Simulated assay, not measured.
Amino acid sequence: MLYRKIPKTGDSLSILGFGCMRLPTDEKGSIDKKRAIEQIRYAIDNGVNYLDTAWPYHSGNSELLVADALGQGYREKVRLATKLPSWMIKSRDDMDYYLNAQLEKLKTGHIDYYLIHNLAGPIWEKLKSFGVLEFIDRAKQSGRIVNAGFSFHGKIDDFKTIVDDYPWEMCQIQYNYLDEELQAGTEGLEYAASKNLGIVIMEPLRGGNLGIPEPPPDVDAIWKEAPHLRTPVEWALRWIWNRPEVTVVLSGMNEEAHIKENLAIADDGYPDSLTEEELKLVNRVTNRYRKLMKVGCTGCEYCKPCPSGVNISGCFEILNKFHLFKNEDEAKFMYAIRMAGAITGTEPAFASQCTQCGECLEKCPQGIAIPDFLEEVAAAFEDENFEQRIAMGKKMLKIE
């Protein structure tokens, strides 16, 4: 494992961090506690020392699971990060309420890196009016938090304003080779680094889309031109670690094989280690993906819950894979069986259930025109044979 330092604190953090938003789940959709704890501890035993969770992850259960995983002496081996749920704050008192509740849930006396969650310009201005800057100062003085930061999903000008409004120790941004100009992007990465902030990267695989083992043929052909062959996951992670400004890359690792793969890749994640030829190759892949992908959804699920019960990210995942792989029959069948709830035993969550209420538009950090794309999903997959595919899927799964 390689490590990089947070400039203002001197903390030496593993370049691979464990993101606890997508932990393994059981057949009921609850966290598979035994597997999740084993996975987190395995990562720590193999050098990972930065864990990231948040209040809403896994419907509020991620922090509780992390607390259990960090028992038996594991808490002392890591720097723990969680986040203030900014959208739930209605007053100055709320900030202390959530922080104190998180300390209790996490069974710890302090949070090493406490982030203000999911910031953009308007919500930041509202939090400032509630006294968030004083809250951070007092929380530090009381020892409840050690370092302060923020996670960001907004426009670059707002990002710079937030960076300049407080002497943060770190920030967390979305960054991958498809998103150099999205949200904070490369400009924000360099700006934060110029202010000596540690920088934690989320969505390095863009919701998993950049790590598909068998990428689209057009993309795969480009990768095979490389003088040194790598997996899609390795290309994506190495491209980010190539930037010396990056401190930690978060990965939501819910499969044992993924953890082992990412740990192995992290051993070679040196800055400035990719050649000019390799960087040009990645740029060609970027351009090809942009032509193939339909929706820029990362699967973060901030759009949930949908008042009409639509599985928004699931719909977009299938639409994107359809455009990437052109397998119409498979896409239609998977849409029918997944959105009918046949696999999970949940209520139907079809795109056609969308009433265009617009609530998701306010939540989406990617700024996606969700209702418009849901119309496209319904048109593509809910044809005259739709009900027949649902019945066939239930029969295959032996569901009455």
Rank of each mutant, 00 (worst) to 15 (best):
M1H: 10
L2Y: 02
Y3W: 04
I6K: 00
I6R: 00
T9E: 04
T9V: 10
T9M: 06
G10V: 12
D11G: 03
S12T: 09
S14A: 15
S14G: 15
M21K: 14
P24L: 10
E27L: 06
G29K: 11
K33S: 13
A36N: 04
E38T: 03
V48G: 03
Y50I: 09
L51A: 10
T53E: 04
A54F: 07
P56Y: 08
L65H: 08
D68F: 05
A69Y: 06
G71K: 14
Q72R: 11
R75V: 08
V78G: 07
P85C: 12
W87K: 09
W87N: 06
K90E: 09
N100E: 14
N100S: 12
E104N: 07
L106M: 12
T108F: 07
H110G: 00
L115F: 14
N118I: 01
W124G: 01
E125N: 03
E134F: 04
F135N: 03
R138P: 06
Q141A: 14
I145P: 00
V146T: 14
F150K: 00
H153F: 08
D157T: 14
T161W: 13
V163F: 03
D164K: 08
W168M: 06
A184E: 11
G185L: 11
E187D: 15
E187W: 12
E190H: 11
E190I: 10
Y191T: 13
A192N: 05
A192F: 08
S194P: 01
S194C: 06
K195H: 10
L197K: 03
G198F: 02
I199P: 03
G207N: 03
G208N: 04
A221W: 02
I222E: 06
W223Q: 02
K224I: 14
A226E: 11
P227K: 03
R230D: 01
L237W: 10
W241L: 02
P244I: 00
E245Y: 02
V249I: 12
L250T: 05
G252P: 00
E256M: 09
E261C: 11
E261T: 13
I265A: 08
D268L: 11
P271W: 00
E276N: 13
E277M: 12
E277S: 15
N283M: 08
N283W: 09
V285S: 03
N287D: 04
N287F: 01
R290V: 06
L292K: 06
G299P: 00
Y302C: 12
C303K: 04
C303L: 12
K304P: 02
P305E: 02
S308K: 04
S313E: 11
G314D: 01
C315G: 00
F322N: 01
F322G: 00
H323N: 15
D329N: 10
A331Q: 07
Y335V: 12
M339D: 00
G341C: 15
A342V: 14
E347F: 12
P348K: 10
A351I: 05
C364F: 02
P365E: 02
P371H: 09
E375G: 05
E382P: 01
D383I: 01
E384Q: 14
G393I: 13
